[in-house]
């Protein structure tokens, strides 16, 4: 009886030990698997089972193009749709009145506005209207972009930091109803001085197609290029976007190697298309690749084609 009880007790003990051993083993296995998955996502799909070959291919392509990757690739695997937009509709006179009241601080009345029409080779699609008011010109193109210029340009000497310029510019933008929803993107230095780039945003997705380029002289805005869109919503049909590594490979296939050392300083997901003169259109998601030499490329996140 004892023997049988002891035997049964021994079997129960063995089974219990076996369970404990298996629990510990599977616990370690799961920790390992989770760490691999997290590592995979952290590297933007570069290192995972079955993709070592591709990773090596990507590294080779980067080397051949003379480009270094200074940022980690973001996560892919999203299912998103085209973004539907309409052109921003405005009256140039309204823009001019608002500009004048801010630029001249309401000290003088709005001067007479002169309109000049220019059509290249009689092509109505290339029609340009220039509005002259006071010391400013506002150029309106048919697709809806605006370019404000001061006739007398200020000093090109630049002694301020980007942060100072950004703070000053932000105060300027806050004064305008049509500029205050632009989000700071990045700064670049050009022959005409520093340029602060702003973009639009829709439901936390950057909308690169809607942009504002602000030219700064000292701490004062000297002019801008503006192309604004009215996002309507997302299209119905969603599809999976290509992984960032695929987008990078497709970009490198078309990139012309530079003699200078080039690096990728930004790799991000947003929406971009060229400027259209249309009633309404859909904008594809893109992987934006920004290089340290100021060049910016957009790879269609559905097709992998370079958006021009």
């Amino acid at each position: 009886m004892k023997a049988s009880e002891g035997g049964l007790g021994g079997e129960v003990m063995d089974l219990s030990k076996a369970k404990t051993l298996l629990i510990v083993t599977f616990l370690f296995l799961n920790i390992f698997l989770v760490s691999q998955i997290l590592l995979d996502e952290g590297r933007g799909n570069l290192a995972s089972f079955g993709r070592n070959e591709e990773m090596s291919r990507l590294e080779t392509a980067l080397q051949e193009a003379g480009i270094s990757l200074d940022v980690s690739l973001p996560r892919g695997g999203l299912r998103i749709a085209h973004l539907i937009v309409e052109p921003w509709r405005f009256q140039p006179e309204d823009i001019i009145y608002e500009l004048w009241s801010v630029l001249e601080k309401d000290e003088t009345e709005v001067p007479p506005i002169y309109e000049e029409y220019d059509s290249i080779a009689n092509d109505e699609n290339l029609r340009i209207v220039t509005y002259l008011f006071g010391d400013y010109t506002l150029v309106e193109r048919k697709e809806g972009s605006l370019n404000l210029r001061a006739l007398e340009e200020g000093s090109l000497l630049q002694t301020n930091s980007i942060e100072e310029l950004q703070n000053s510019a932000q105060k300027f933008l806050n004064d305008f109803s049509f500029l205050n929803n632009f989000i700071y993107d990045y700064a670049q230095i050009s022959q005409k001085g520093p340029i602060l780039n702003y973009r639009q945003e829709y439901e936390e997705f950057p909308l690169y197609a809607g942009y504002l380029q602000l030219y700064m002289h000292e701490l004062n805005p000297a002019g801008f290029y503006l192309y604004r869109l009215d996002p309507i919503g997302f299209a119905e049909q969603k599809r999976e976007i290509i992984p960032p590594s695929t987008a990078l490979v497709r970009f490198l296939e078309t990139y012309n190697k530079s003699n200078f050392k080039t690096s990728i300083i930004e790799f991000s997901l947003g929406y971009y298309s060229q400027e259209y003169d249309a009633e309404r259109w859909e904008i594809p998601p893109v992987w934006r690749i920004r290089l340290n030499n100021g060049e910016v490329y957009y790879v269609n996140a559905f097709t992998g084609n370079l958006e021009r």
Partner: peptide, 11 residues
């Protein structure tokens, strides 16, 4: 695949 094509309504 319709989701690959973006639609533009022209003026």
């Amino acid at each position: 695949d319709l989701s690959m094509a973006r639609r533009i309504e022209e003026r």
